[in-house]
């Protein structure tokens, strides 16, 4: 075969495109190799053990995993209804209002996480400590709910979860917005025509039509919240013990890695890589599910 520029160009493009699967597998292999020592010593107990003691070299991921799940859960339950209502509003609103609003919300996504962290540390934490937490505990008596906690110092799962909620809001909202816009106008007009209210149209037509897309958006937000490092690191308190309450300090996988990495070596570092591997597996799974959902909606709309 004659070697032409076309041939070379095509091969070069193909080579670059295949960098993607190569990178993803390289992440996996690298983390697996670097964490092999921890897996060898602890086995699968690493995942179910809650002990984290650098002095006696006993490590377990359970507290970090639970902490990650708690913050993610708080973040999603706070931002989902907001993102949903926002996306519906933007999809419904006239162009002149919808566009600036959409841009403003996208702005939230472009603020770096370290700045969210600083905002959380210097602005939100004092407010949580002095106003929100006393209000929740003393006025609303939420302290009687198990696991809610009876005192707080501003740091902890609740604060981290709320800041994460602000951070994932634009991502979920952007996906939902696109999904809602894909509903054929005819369906909505028909619903209005038979006398449905706006809420009923949204609930029975738009949501039903874009179910998979909404699910995809939720999973995208989930993936973002799982791996967020700096913002959480600043406000979660970095307490390695078992999570005691929502108001209490704790840790997440990503913040454990960032917080311990500088002073770790040997088995300790290996355990951190093992945490990284767990986080990678979780986020790959979630991203894959979200992409699967979103791809399906594209196929349906064509």
């Amino acid at each position: 075969m004659k070697i032409s520029t076309d041939f070379i160009f095509k091969k070069a493009c193909r080579l670059c495109a295949f960098a993607v699967p190569i990178f993803i597998s390289a992440f996996f292999v690298q983390l697996a190799v670097s964490s092999s020592e921890a897996w060898k010593v602890f086995g699968l107990d690493f995942i179910v053990s809650g002990e984290w003691n650098p002095v006696s070299e006993k490590f377990g991921a359970l507290n970090a995993i639970i902490g990650t799940l708690i913050t993610t859960l708080i973040a999603l339950s706070a931002s989902l209804p907001l993102a949903f209502a926002l996306a519906l509003f933007i999809a419904d609103a006239p162009e002149i209002m919808a566009k600036p609003l959409a841009h403003a919300i996208d702005l939230l996504a472009s603020i770096p996480s370290v700045i969210y962290g600083m905002w959380g540390l210097f602005v939100i934490c004092p407010i949580m400590q002095n106003i929100v937490q006393p209000f929740l505990i003393e006025t609303l008596h939420f302290g009687k709910i198990p696991f809610f906690g009876t005192q707080g110092n501003g740091f902890g799962f609740l604060t981290a979860g709320l800041i994460l909620a602000v951070m994932v809001l634009p991502y979920i909202c952007a996906v939902m917005r696109d999904v809602f816009k894909m509903t054929p106008p005819m369906l909505r007009e028909a619903a209005f025509g038979i006398g449905c209210t706006r809420f009923e149209t949204a609930k029975d037509i738009v949501v039903k039509y874009g179910k998979r897309g909404i699910l995809g958006g939720i999973f995208i937000g989930l993936g973002r919240a799982l791996g967020e490092t700096m913002a959480v690191l600043f406000v979660i308190g970095n307490f390695m013990g078992p999570p005691a309450s929502l108001m209490g300090s704790g840790t997440t996988i990503a913040s454990t890695i960032a917080n311990n990495f500088a002073e770790a070596d040997g088995l300790h570092k290996s355990a951190l890589f093992a945490l990284g591997l767990i986080l990678l597996a979780m986020s790959l799974l979630i991203q894959a599910v979200s992409q699967y959902c979103l791809n399906k909606t594209d196929a349906n709309s064509n």
Partner: peptide
Amino acid sequence: ANVMMGIPSILVGLF
């Protein structure tokens, strides 16, 4: 590529 966009940046740092 879509999945890769969602990988937490801290893991890229570790890598």
